[in-house]
């Protein structure tokens, strides 16, 4: 099953790599959450990512953004065109895909195409993606990511999605301990971050 929808889309891809993509959105009230699960609909394949970096810029070519010292409401009143120039960009690490035959928690043969739209994952997708916890392995293998924070954030999300299933949390902790058995300090810091929830 592939998911699609237009209503709640949160961005459009503007750069792709095998292991990650960069999406841009505008006019959003809320920023996508760090560690949240997203889906890029690209041709017949859904490609899943984990948001690991969120970045907001002012794209007004005429004006350099500067501190204005105004509360948000007052700011919008005095500068009504500001939202048009504000762009949100976020990076997502590719953690899996689905091609109609179910969700696979490993890298797809190709990345999503540029200009594909990005949506937040449905609850069921999050459950499926996090079922065997292999995504932790994928994330750990990517260079340059804030792995400890990212793993912890995504596991907390998946845990909440499961209505606080403690057995899941234990399994996740064990997967981390196993994966990082030679990096005890790293495992310990992630485990401390996920044990917070319950």
């Amino acid at each position: 099953m592939t998911y699609s929808g237009t209503t709640d889309r949160i961005g459009e891809i503007i750069e792709v790599y095998t292991t990650r993509f960069l999406a841009q959105s505008s006019g959003l009230e809320d920023l996508p959450h760090f560690g949240s699960f997203v889906r890029a609909d690209s041709q017949d394949t859904n490609i899943y990512g984990l948001v690991y970096n969120v970045h907001e810029v002012n794209t007004d070519p005429n004006r350099r953004p500067m501190a204005l010292g105004l509360e948000r409401e007052e700011l919008l009143r005095q500068h009504p065109y500001l939202p048009e120039f504000l762009k949100i960009e976020f990076d997502a690490a590719v953690i899996g895909f689905s091609d109609g035959a179910g969700i696979r928690a490993y890298l797809p043969p190709f990345p999503p195409r540029i200009h594909s739209f990005v949506y937040p994952c449905e609850s069921q997708e999050i459950l499926d993606l996090t079922e065997d916890l292999d995504f932790i392995r994928s994330i750990n293998a990517l260079p340059g990511l804030p792995v400890e924070e990212l793993v912890a954030a995504s596991i907390r999300l998946a845990y909440a999605e499961r209505g606080g299933d403690r057995a899941f949390l234990v399994r996740a902790g064990q997967t981390i301990a196993q994966l990082l058995k030679d990096e005890y300090e790293k495992a310990r810091s992630i485990i401390r971050r996920i044990s917070d929830v319950g």
């Binding site: 902790g173 064990q174 058995k181 044990s195």
Partner: peptide, 9 residues
């Protein structure tokens, strides 16, 4: 929790 998840690994 930490004892539990490290156990066996």
């Amino acid at each position: 929790f930490a004892k539990l998840v490290h156990a066996g690994i």
